[in-house]
Protein backbone atom coordinates (compact mmCIF):
# COMPACT_ATOMS: atom_id res chain seq x y z
CA UNK A 1 0.00 0.00 0.00
CA UNK A 2 1.45 3.35 -0.94
CA UNK A 3 1.65 5.97 1.75
CA UNK A 4 -1.18 8.48 1.86
CA UNK A 5 -0.69 11.89 0.24
CA UNK A 6 -0.91 15.22 2.00
CA UNK A 7 -4.39 15.78 0.59
CA UNK A 8 -5.59 12.45 1.98
CA UNK A 9 -4.08 13.44 5.32
CA UNK A 10 -5.89 16.78 5.36
CA UNK A 11 -9.19 15.13 4.51
CA UNK A 12 -8.78 12.39 7.09
CA UNK A 13 -7.81 14.74 9.93
CA UNK A 14 -10.55 17.20 8.96
CA UNK A 15 -13.26 14.53 9.00
CA UNK A 16 -12.00 13.02 12.22
CA UNK A 17 -11.80 16.32 14.11
CA UNK A 18 -15.21 17.42 12.85
CA UNK A 19 -16.65 14.13 14.03
CA UNK A 20 -15.06 14.59 17.44
CA UNK A 21 -16.28 18.19 17.65
CA UNK A 22 -19.82 17.20 16.71
CA UNK A 23 -19.83 14.74 19.57
CA UNK A 24 -19.58 17.65 22.01
CA UNK A 25 -21.96 20.20 20.57
CA UNK A 26 -22.43 21.67 24.01
CA UNK A 27 -18.83 22.81 24.14
CA UNK A 28 -19.09 24.40 20.71
CA UNK A 29 -22.21 26.34 21.57
CA UNK A 30 -20.65 27.55 24.82
CA UNK A 31 -17.72 28.96 22.83
CA UNK A 32 -20.09 30.81 20.54
CA UNK A 33 -22.08 31.98 23.55
CA UNK A 34 -18.86 33.36 25.03
CA UNK A 35 -18.50 35.54 21.95
CA UNK A 36 -22.08 36.76 22.23
CA UNK A 37 -21.74 37.59 25.91
CA UNK A 38 -18.45 39.47 25.60
CA UNK A 39 -19.90 41.57 22.79
CA UNK A 40 -23.02 42.23 24.86
CA UNK A 41 -21.04 43.39 27.89
CA UNK A 42 -19.34 46.32 26.19
CA UNK A 43 -22.39 48.57 25.85
CA UNK A 44 -23.07 47.98 29.55
CA UNK A 45 -19.54 49.15 30.32
CA UNK A 46 -19.79 52.30 28.19
CA UNK A 47 -23.09 53.78 27.07
CA UNK A 48 -26.06 52.76 24.96
CA UNK A 49 -25.75 55.85 22.76
CA UNK A 50 -25.71 54.98 19.08
CA UNK A 51 -22.68 57.14 18.34
CA UNK A 52 -20.50 55.52 20.97
CA UNK A 53 -21.60 52.04 20.01
CA UNK A 54 -21.05 52.58 16.31
CA UNK A 55 -17.51 53.77 17.03
CA UNK A 56 -16.79 50.90 19.38
CA UNK A 57 -18.57 48.21 17.38
CA UNK A 58 -15.94 47.07 14.87
CA UNK A 59 -13.22 46.95 17.51
CA UNK A 60 -15.37 45.10 20.03
CA UNK A 61 -16.68 42.56 17.53
CA UNK A 62 -13.14 41.87 16.37
CA UNK A 63 -11.45 41.79 19.77
CA UNK A 64 -14.11 39.39 21.04
CA UNK A 65 -13.44 37.18 18.00
CA UNK A 66 -9.77 37.07 19.00
CA UNK A 67 -10.68 36.05 22.54
CA UNK A 68 -13.14 33.43 21.32
CA UNK A 69 -10.46 31.95 19.05
CA UNK A 70 -7.98 31.96 21.92
CA UNK A 71 -10.42 30.25 24.22
CA UNK A 72 -11.00 27.40 21.79
CA UNK A 73 -7.33 26.83 20.91
CA UNK A 74 -6.68 24.50 23.82
CA UNK A 75 -9.18 22.09 22.24
CA UNK A 76 -7.03 21.84 19.11
CA UNK A 77 -4.27 19.53 20.35
CA UNK A 78 -4.45 19.31 24.13
CA UNK A 79 -6.91 16.43 24.56
CA UNK A 80 -5.32 14.44 21.73
CA UNK A 81 -1.96 15.04 23.38
CA UNK A 82 -3.17 13.92 26.79
CA UNK A 83 -4.69 10.61 25.69
CA UNK A 84 -1.84 9.76 23.34
CA UNK A 85 -3.87 10.12 20.14
CA UNK A 86 -1.56 12.86 18.90
CA UNK A 87 1.42 10.54 19.14
CA UNK A 88 -0.44 7.89 17.13
CA UNK A 89 -1.35 10.50 14.54
CA UNK A 90 2.25 11.69 14.28
CA UNK A 91 3.48 8.11 13.86
CA UNK A 92 1.14 7.43 10.96
CA UNK A 93 2.71 7.28 7.48
CA UNK A 94 0.67 10.29 6.37
CA UNK A 95 2.58 13.59 6.31
CA UNK A 96 2.19 15.41 9.60
CA UNK A 97 1.89 18.78 7.86
CA UNK A 98 -1.25 17.54 6.13
CA UNK A 99 -2.69 16.10 9.32
CA UNK A 100 -2.25 19.29 11.32
CA UNK A 101 -3.64 21.32 8.38
CA UNK A 102 -6.78 19.18 8.52
CA UNK A 103 -7.06 19.71 12.27
CA UNK A 104 -6.65 23.47 11.85
CA UNK A 105 -9.30 23.53 9.13
CA UNK A 106 -11.68 21.64 11.41
CA UNK A 107 -10.93 24.10 14.20
CA UNK A 108 -11.81 27.02 11.96
CA UNK A 109 -15.02 25.40 10.72
CA UNK A 110 -16.17 24.89 14.30
CA UNK A 111 -15.09 28.24 15.77
CA UNK A 112 -14.15 30.93 13.24
CA UNK A 113 -16.96 30.24 10.83
CA UNK A 114 -19.76 30.35 13.44
CA UNK A 115 -18.30 33.56 14.86
CA UNK A 116 -18.19 35.14 11.40
CA UNK A 117 -21.78 34.07 10.83
CA UNK A 118 -22.93 35.39 14.19
CA UNK A 119 -21.08 38.71 14.04
CA UNK A 120 -23.44 40.60 11.66
CA UNK A 121 -26.34 39.75 13.95
CA UNK A 122 -24.48 41.17 16.92
CA UNK A 123 -23.42 44.14 14.82
CA UNK A 124 -27.07 45.19 14.67
CA UNK A 125 -26.90 45.69 18.44
CA UNK A 126 -24.23 48.25 17.75
CA UNK A 127 -26.30 50.11 15.19
CA UNK A 128 -24.09 49.17 12.23
CA UNK A 129 -25.84 49.23 8.87
CA UNK A 130 -25.89 46.70 6.05
CA UNK A 131 -22.69 47.50 4.10
CA UNK A 132 -20.74 47.67 7.35
CA UNK A 133 -22.18 44.36 8.50
CA UNK A 134 -21.30 42.73 5.20
CA UNK A 135 -17.70 43.97 5.51
CA UNK A 136 -17.61 42.71 9.08
CA UNK A 137 -18.61 39.23 7.97
CA UNK A 138 -16.19 39.26 5.05
CA UNK A 139 -13.26 40.50 7.16
CA UNK A 140 -13.98 37.82 9.77
CA UNK A 141 -14.19 35.16 7.06
CA UNK A 142 -10.72 36.20 5.87
CA UNK A 143 -9.27 36.86 9.31
CA UNK A 144 -10.47 34.03 11.54
CA UNK A 145 -8.61 31.34 9.54
CA UNK A 146 -5.42 33.28 10.30
CA UNK A 147 -6.36 33.21 13.97
CA UNK A 148 -6.73 29.42 13.80
CA UNK A 149 -3.47 28.97 11.88
CA UNK A 150 -1.29 31.24 14.02
CA UNK A 151 -3.03 30.10 17.18
CA UNK A 152 -2.29 26.47 16.29
CA UNK A 153 1.43 27.25 16.47
CA UNK A 154 0.99 28.57 20.01
CA UNK A 155 -1.26 25.68 20.97
CA UNK A 156 1.30 23.14 19.76
CA UNK A 157 4.22 24.93 21.43
CA UNK A 158 2.52 25.00 24.83
CA UNK A 159 1.70 21.27 24.81
CA UNK A 160 3.04 19.79 28.02
CA UNK A 161 4.10 23.21 29.32
CA UNK A 162 3.04 24.61 32.66
CA UNK A 163 0.44 27.36 32.90
CA UNK A 164 -1.27 26.47 29.62
CA UNK A 165 -4.08 29.00 29.16
CA UNK A 166 -2.50 32.27 30.15
CA UNK A 167 0.84 31.31 28.59
CA UNK A 168 -0.96 30.61 25.33
CA UNK A 169 -2.56 34.06 25.51
CA UNK A 170 0.82 35.70 26.01
CA UNK A 171 2.31 33.86 23.02
CA UNK A 172 -0.57 34.25 20.62
CA UNK A 173 -2.27 37.59 21.26
CA UNK A 174 0.71 39.79 20.22
CA UNK A 175 0.90 37.82 16.97
CA UNK A 176 -2.80 38.52 16.41
CA UNK A 177 -2.25 42.28 16.41
CA UNK A 178 -1.96 42.71 12.61
CA UNK A 179 -5.11 40.65 11.99
CA UNK A 180 -6.99 42.81 14.46
CA UNK A 181 -5.69 46.00 12.87
CA UNK A 182 -6.62 45.04 9.32
CA UNK A 183 -9.86 43.31 10.27
CA UNK A 184 -11.32 46.01 12.47
CA UNK A 185 -9.79 48.60 10.13
CA UNK A 186 -11.74 47.23 7.17
CA UNK A 187 -15.03 47.58 9.05
CA UNK A 188 -14.08 51.02 10.28
CA UNK A 189 -13.16 52.15 6.77
CA UNK A 190 -16.58 51.27 5.41
CA UNK A 191 -18.22 52.97 8.37
CA UNK A 192 -16.26 56.12 7.50
CA UNK A 193 -17.38 55.87 3.88
CA UNK A 194 -14.07 54.64 2.50
CA UNK A 195 -13.21 51.50 0.59
CA UNK A 196 -12.29 48.42 2.61
CA UNK A 197 -10.42 46.91 -0.33
CA UNK A 198 -6.87 47.69 0.89
CA UNK A 199 -7.55 46.20 4.33
CA UNK A 200 -9.22 43.15 2.88
CA UNK A 201 -6.45 42.49 0.36
CA UNK A 202 -3.88 42.73 3.14
CA UNK A 203 -5.93 40.27 5.19
CA UNK A 204 -6.09 37.95 2.19
CA UNK A 205 -2.32 38.24 1.72
CA UNK A 206 -1.83 37.45 5.40
CA UNK A 207 -4.11 34.46 5.06
CA UNK A 208 -2.08 33.11 2.14
CA UNK A 209 1.16 33.56 4.04
CA UNK A 210 -0.31 31.87 7.10
CA UNK A 211 -1.64 28.95 5.04
CA UNK A 212 1.78 28.46 3.46
CA UNK A 213 3.91 28.83 6.58
CA UNK A 214 1.90 27.99 9.69
CA UNK A 215 1.29 24.25 9.10
CA UNK A 216 5.05 23.67 8.89
CA UNK A 217 5.66 25.53 12.13
CA UNK A 218 2.80 23.62 13.75
CA UNK A 219 4.09 20.22 12.68
CA UNK A 220 7.58 21.13 13.90
CA UNK A 221 6.10 22.22 17.23
CA UNK A 222 4.06 19.01 17.52
CA UNK A 223 7.18 16.92 16.93
CA UNK A 224 9.04 18.89 19.59
CA UNK A 225 6.20 18.33 22.06
CA UNK A 226 6.17 14.57 21.35
CA UNK A 227 9.92 14.08 21.73
Amino acid sequence: MESPSAVDAIGWALRRDLRVAMRSKGELSVELLFYVIVVTLFPLATSPSRDTLATLGPGVLWTAALLAALLSLSRLFASDFRDGTLEQIALSPAPLVGLVSGKIAAHWLTTGLPVAAMAPLLGIQYGLDAPVLATLALSLLLGTPILSLVGAVGAALTLGARGGGSLLALLVLPLYAPVLIFGAGAVDAVRAGLSAAPHLSLLAAGLLLAILAAPFAVSAAVRIALD
Binding site: T158, R162, L171, A221, I224
Partner: peptide, 16 residues
Protein backbone atom coordinates in the same frame (compact mmCIF):
# COMPACT_ATOMS: atom_id res chain seq x y z
CA UNK B 1 10.97 33.92 28.23
CA UNK B 2 7.69 32.60 29.65
CA UNK B 3 7.65 29.63 27.28
CA UNK B 4 11.20 28.80 28.28
CA UNK B 5 10.36 28.75 31.97
CA UNK B 6 7.16 26.77 31.40
CA UNK B 7 8.88 23.78 29.79
CA UNK B 8 10.65 21.43 32.13
CA UNK B 9 13.10 19.73 29.77
CA UNK B 10 15.74 22.27 28.62
CA UNK B 11 16.35 20.60 25.26
CA UNK B 12 12.66 20.67 24.44
CA UNK B 13 12.45 24.26 25.66
CA UNK B 14 15.35 25.12 23.34
CA UNK B 15 13.53 23.90 20.29
CA UNK B 16 10.10 25.21 21.24
Amino acid sequence: IALRSAIEDPRRADRA
